[in-house]
Amino acid sequence: MRTNDVMLQTATKVVTFIILMFAVHIFFAGHYTPGGGFVGGLLTTSAIVLLMLAFDVKTVKKILPINYVIMTAVGLLIAIATAAASIIFDVPFFTHAYDYFDLPLFGKTSLHSAMLFDAGVYLVVVGVTMTIIQTIGEDE
């Protein structure tokens, strides 16, 4: 039985972007206010899951042609590379650095290498949760 869920799909089209924006916000805000890579990742996943519920796994795969296992691997790589980069500057493993820059459009902004590490966490969380949900969802 194929039901016609126009309302759900239409709402999803709007809501997904709101959730994604919120996820990105939470991710970037993590260093100063509650949030961070982990929650941001989970929220991103929930946006994709909402898409899967409204449409179906195949469609979502078509619009988001991402291999989540590779995404996980890239995330882990970024995390370990950020941690290891400190060795080049002859400081102990996992030493972070930060400074303030004048960026166009943003103005005076603090850039922190911990953000890169958090990005790794973000990618891993999205990758793993999506791997799990997709694998189980496709299972017969």
Binding site: G30, H31, P34, F94, A114, F117, D118
Partner: peptide
């Protein structure tokens, strides 16, 4: 250089655990 203690602990002070 952060404001959220929890997150700073997670990614900076004790990033090893998170890794």
């Amino acid at each position: 250089g952060g404001g959220n203690i929890v997150n700073v602990i997670l990614v900076d002070y004790r990033g090893f655990d998170t890794l």
